[in-house]
Amino acid sequence: MLEFLLLLVCASILVSGVLAVCLKNVLPAMVASGLASLFAAVSFLLLAAPDVAMAEAAIGSGLATFIFLYAIRKTGNGKG
């Protein structure tokens, strides 16, 4: 059961990573990279490192995504 969860989380991380790199539009790509970060936080929990999971969930998937959002808004929706 735990193994299945682990493989599911790994697959989610890789799919989100591929989406973050391959999506045509910048905004969904940015959301996908935040999603990869969030699944990475889950996997840190599976690796018995709750401190790191907390930092990754708050910073990697929260604040970084938000800063990207402002940057995309300020650069004409990331076109060009």
Binding site: V26, A36, E56, I72
Partner: peptide, 29 residues
């Protein structure tokens, strides 16, 4: 590796930064 690929293939600066963030997450893992 996905992050490195993204950083090197894209020409849009924001996409390069997204690739860097993905690589960062991978190395933390």
């Amino acid at each position: 590796l996905i992050g490195i690929w993204g950083m090197l293939t894209h020409r849009n600066i924001l996409r390069i930064i997204i690739g860097f963030a993905v690589m960062d997450t991978g190395l933390h893992l």
